[in-house]
Design a binder for these strands. Sequence first.
DNA 1: AAAATAGTGTCTATAAGACATTATGTC
DNA 2: GACATAATGTCTTATAGACACTATTTT
Lengths: 220, 220
Amino acid sequence: MTDIHAYEKPSLTTDMVMLRVARQTTDSNKKDKLHLEILLIRRKNDPQKGFYSLPGGFVAVNEDIETCLMAKLKEKTGVEGKFYYEQLYTNGKLRRDPRGRVISVSYIGLVNDETYNKKGTWYPLENVMAKGFQMAFDHKIIINQAIERLANKLEYTDVAFNLLTSEFIISDLQQVFELILNKELVGPNFRRKISQWIEPTGNKTEGQAYRPTEIFRLKK
Amino acid sequence: MTDIHAYEKPSLTTDMVMLRVARQTTDSNKKDKLHLEILLIRRKNDPQKGFYSLPGGFVAVNEDIETCLMAKLKEKTGVEGKFYYEQLYTNGKLRRDPRGRVISVSYIGLVNDETYNKKGTWYPLENVMAKGFQMAFDHKIIINQAIERLANKLEYTDVAFNLLTSEFIISDLQQVFELILNKELVGPNFRRKISQWIEPTGNKTEGQAYRPTEIFRLKK
DNA sequence: AAAATAGTGTCTATAAGACATTATGTC
DNA sequence: GACATAATGTCTTATAGACACTATTTT
């Protein structure tokens, strides 16, 4: 039986691209604008002290990757709950971490007001991806991989719904699509396209300075 | 600076799901039937001696994952060349390898008669996936992940063309689609659907006991 | 009435699926 | 002519995009 401990090994980390949607409170007579936010931590130690990074950490020898992922997430941000996540990509370029050889298995996590405990520090994705925002290691690349993956999955899955609560209005859903796809969609066409996924709850929003909106839920 | 060597680490392997398409020579008056084949090795040592496994091996501490992948592929099967590949998934269940904690980063590789050196032992995928065929570890699961991924990508990418040579006939291409999607397609409709991807070379096949066929190539 | 957004309807272009029909070679 | 497969055409239905128009609330 081969001795798998006879050679020096790379280190393995797991990192989470955690996303949520937040409301930009503007004029109360107008509709809420939504934007994407990402959960980041600020590095307290070298290397790259002070830089922002995805929450995550080293996987121990007899620790399951996803168990590790969730443990580190809770430990470093306080965030926990039963939310949607999926594996994204394994980045292992030789010099991606100055400490030595570190391979990162990254995940996407999507939460809403019902699926997590509202802890952690969230940053507008737009700011984070702007030039000048100092992300550690290759974490900006990983975030880009996540957005690209989500944009693809929007077309043929119901991932987007994980960013909204179980009951929602169509215009919020449309905004989520627009944010991830990074382009404007035509309301009536969007409505028709997603009508196959959703069903009305029978309730309407109230209190706004414009026509009330039907509240929907995800079908089946 | 954190000492990343202060804890015991999992082992990391990389495994390749290498696929090709082969002709089943039957009646020479009839059209070639194609089938998928997968490149496997037979384990010479315990654990799971005698079982079949995906080619691959342990990633050394300062070895790039994909460099390792290609080196192990060549070392264990003789296969090399410039062919299409993409990362598939990272499987890291706690007890997937009896030797200890081993995490596998798997890849899909697609070759044709032009893109590799024709070495290695290839097995009909159908046989390999049948009950009773003894694959080591979770490698059968990984193969399933690969087929599922390819089936998805057929719809919106040109991955399938990597399994054929640069010049091909439509019916071969259709068979590749049918093999991966595991369902029959209607010829005229398939032709129309892929016509956007391909262009005629101007040549035709000859020598068969039926109507000659236009030879195409991938557009752009 | 004005402002703001929700929601419906219509027209067009494009794509998918089913399938009949014709074409072109060998034996 | 029979056989085998290639290739074209047609019809129907579904879907995407553009956009005009109507509806419903608050101020």
